[in-house]
């Protein structure tokens, strides 16, 4: 599969009052054309910052280094103006909270229309037609009426559909969906996931799906990147990851998410908690919570090494070499 987006050595640092904090540290992954790639991890693992780094939406205090290769250009070297042209047209994004992502004082039609207005040339009537078409495409009933409605009149699921309509308005090559269904009810989540999957096939988009829910990953994704404490700890195709996770963290995640109890009816869990950015140890960042921890884990950090064609893992147990720091 030819890759459309290639992230290499992405590091993102935020400067603050108490010095700089590196939130994303040397992240590598590739997104194939027409592929749905999942990025999973717990809160604070850097998955959202990774996606914001791709679109350069970090604000003044964030600074990224590394390479983000998209269509023969490095996004990190693009000017703000060039990035504005890329956002929404080539790479677009939907967020977790559809409530706060829509402007409450503009009608739905106007907001989606604006997206088209920025990136394409079309007359007002053409635009309206296109917006209504989009609303129908994302499964919104009574599209003509909703076109004139304000966001607060819509339910959470409907708003997320509007966000999706907006994101696909310019047929982007890549869609980044950051926890798109976390705020939704489970029956509505099923609807929205279904919609996303259908649209992906229809428009041949590539999707980066950021989530903490391995169930969503299992239903949607072709491949998965597992992140922990700002680093990629494992990448594998979905089936391999869920069937035989390699990295101890991925193991813990898969086992605790499946809610399978062990002999004495207890859930598998990972002891302790995710370390905060800025408090990472110099060894393997998972060492303190790992049940297989070795001496070497505390001393030095393993690199992300290739296990086979599709699987990489950052762990001393799987023959990693020492990471270059």
């Amino acid at each position: 599969m030819p890759s459309i987006l290639k992230v290499k050595g992405l590091s993102t640092t935020f400067s603050g009052k108490h010095g700089d904090t590196t939130v994303v540290d040397g992240v590598d992954f590739e997104l194939g054309k027409g592929e749905i790639l999942g990025i999973v991890g717990e809160s604070g693992c850097g998955k959202s910052v990774t996606s914001l780094s791709i679109l350069q939406l970090l604000g003044k205090k964030g600074e990224s280094s590394g390479v983000i290769q998209f269509n023969d250009m490095n996004l990190l070297e693009q000017s703000e103006k060039a990035m504005r042209g890329i956002r929404g047209r080539d790479i677009s994004m939907i967020f977790q909270d559809p409530m706060s992502s829509l402007n409450p004082i503009l009608t739905i039609g106007k907001q989606i229309g604006e997206m088209i207005e920025i990136h394409e040339e079309a007359s007002g009537a053409e635009r309206k037609l296109k917006v209504i078409g989009l609303l129908k495409k994302v499964g919104i009933p009574r599209a003509e009426e909703i076109y004139r409605e304000y966001p607060h009149r819509l339910s959470g699921g409907m708003k997320q559909r509007v966000m999706i309509a907006m994101a696909i308005a310019c047929n982007p090559a890549v869609l980044i969906a950051d926890e798109p269904t976390t705020a939704l009810d489970v029956t509505i989540q099923a609807q929205v996931l279904d919609l996303l999957k259908g649209l992906q096939k229809e428009l041949n988009m590539s999707i980066i799906l950021i989530t903490h829910d391995l169930g969503v990953v299992a239903e949607m994704c072709d491949r998965v990147v597992v992140m922990y404490a700002g680093q990629v700890v494992e990448t594998a195709d979905t089936r391999t990851l869920l069937r035989s996770p390699k990295h101890p963290y991925a193991k813990g995640l898969v086992h605790s998410a499946s809610l399978v109890s062990n002999e004495n009816k207890r859930l598998n869990s990972i002891p302790g908690q995710v370390p905060l950015p800025g408090q990472f140890s110099s060894g393997c960042r998972f060492a303190d919570r790992c049940e297989y921890v070795l001496d070497v884990c505390r001393r030095s950090q393993p690199s992300l090494s290739k296990l086979d064609k599709n699987t990489t893992c950052r762990c001393w147990l799987y023959g990693s070499k020492e990471a270059v720091q």
């Binding site: 002891p271 302790g272 908690q273 905060l276 408090q279 303190d288």
Partner: peptide, 9 residues
């Protein structure tokens, strides 16, 4: 004991 959660600070 197995939890003995280390404090954040």
């Amino acid at each position: 004991q197995s939890l003995h959660a280390p404090l954040m600070k």
